[in-house]
Structures are given as structure tokens and as C-alpha cells.
Amino acid sequence: MSSESITQQVPSMSRRSRWARVKKSMGEFSLSLYGWGGYFFLYLPIVILVIFSFNDSRSTAQWSGFTFDWYGEMIHDSQIILSLWNSLFVAVISTIISVVIGTLAAMAMERHVFRGKLLMDAVLYLPIIIPDIAMAIMLLIFFDISGIGFEPWKVSLFGIRLAVPYSVIISHVAFNISFVAIVVRARLAQMDRTLEEAAQDLYADTWQTFWKVTLPMMMPGIMGGALLAFTLSLDDFVITFFTSGAGFNTLPVRVFSMIKKGVTPKINAVSSLMLVFSLALIGISLLLRKGGDEEPTIGIGL
């Protein structure tokens, strides 16, 4: 009697559970489909951009065969090459300055309690929150009325003469300090402070403790901050555009004026080159992260 009722229940149970399973796998399937769709959306435009940099016609919409011609044109365009050097120069110099300044600021903010800390926190966060365009016109007016900055820093690199306005470097440092400070501060916050006490206990004075323990421990954060600053500097268009004055181009500024003149696969070629730069920087940051064996820090920029 009781065994009968059990056997009767089993099919209905299994039908219900089968339906639940089907529903669940359908949900899972559509979620996966959606996920792939999302990445498709993110990557497709970039992939098409790269593909048409090899297009054997002036069109960026109709494929007419494979060529390296646009890359050739790019390399022989002295304006592009000059702006590339300008970009790299500005990025390197502003990264070095902002890493030093930002790291010192991070140490002050993370390790000390003092009056005015809240104000300093706000001052450090503002350049991140304020939109590029607002910061750009602020700096433009400032450099214009103060009269400083627009004269160029003349250097010769590998036989190429650069004339980089100080205003651009100053501006890049101004927005990069905050990013460096935040990244380094996050690293400092997770650092075990007893390590420094241990060093002091082992007869290292304040300086020795800093050089032998604090700095090496901060290094992944400093490198992360440097990479972020370098990337932001290399990518910046708006602030450079407004603070450079006439006649100075970084690569993004050059690309913008090329876009304004008309779309050609040459711009695709330059874009692909910049893409390769970005990928290389991501690769470096991944290597660093592996060396520092820690949680990947997700950098969210505004």
C-alpha cells in the first residue's frame, strides 16, 4: 500500500523537477548568450576598426583587399611621428613627477592624522570627479592670465626636435597626482604596519626602515599608479587640446584633427597603433600584478 503510493508519486515529482531543470538551463543559456553578446558589443567596433586599417581603398566601410599602405603612410607622416614622440615625452615626464608627488601625498594621507586632512582629501578627489572639459578650460584661463607655461620645453630626442609646452606637462601632472595617490594609498592601507615596527626593532632607523621595508612594500602600488598615470596621460585629448596652445600635437590631438578633416583608413592605422600601446601597458600591469601576487585592483577612472 505504502510502496504503491510512492511509485505513483515518483513520475509526477520527476516531471516537475525536469521542468524546473529545463527552466533553469534555459535561463542559464540565455544568460550566457547575453554575456557573449555583451562582449561582442564591446569588441566588435574595435575589431572592425583594426580590420579596415588594412583596407586597400579610402573607404572604411567596403572591403577591397589587404594592404599595409596605410601603415606606410602613417610612418612617413612626419606630423604623426612628431606627435607620437610628443605624447611619449609628455607621458614619461608627467608620470615621473606625479608618481613622486602622489606617493608622498599617499603616505601623508594614509599614515597621518592632521588638521586639514579632510580638505586635502577633497582637493585630491576633485580632479578625478571634475569633467575633462571643465578642468581644461580652467587651466586654459589660468595659463592665459598667468602668462606662464605656454613657452615650450625644447629637447632633442633621437634626432627629433621636440618643443613641448610646460603647460601640457603641468596639466597632466595636475590630474595624475590624484590617481597615483589613490592607488598607492590603497596599497599602503593593506600593508601590515608591524613590518615597519619589526624593522625598527631590528635597529633600522626611520630612513633605513623606509628604504628597506616601506618602499619595497609600496612598490606594486607605485608601479600600478605609474601605469595608470602613463595611460591616462597618453590617452588624454581634451585637456591637452585646450592647454597646448597652437601648433602642438600629441597623438590623440593629431587624431582628432585628422578625424575632423575626414575619415580615412590612415586614422584606423594610427588607432591600431595606439591600441597596441594600450595592450602592451595592460600586459605590463598583468605581469606586475603576478609579481605582486595580490588581489587585482580594479581601477575605475572617471
Binding site: D192, E197, A198, Q200, D201, Y203, A204, D205, V213, M217
Partner: peptide
């Protein structure tokens, strides 16, 4: 006197070994 001038040494609760 700062710690580095005292003739004592410490074994810390979580060891505080320098990971690098």
C-alpha cells in the same frame, strides 16, 4: 629612545616577516 636604539628584540604575534 626609539626602538632601534634599544637592546631588545621582538617576536611579533603574526611574525611580521618581510615578505620581499
Amino acid at each position: 629612545l626609539p626602538p632601534y636604539q634599544r637592546p631588545v628584540n621582538t617576536v611579533f604575534q603574526h611574525y611580521a616577516l618581510f615578505p620581499h
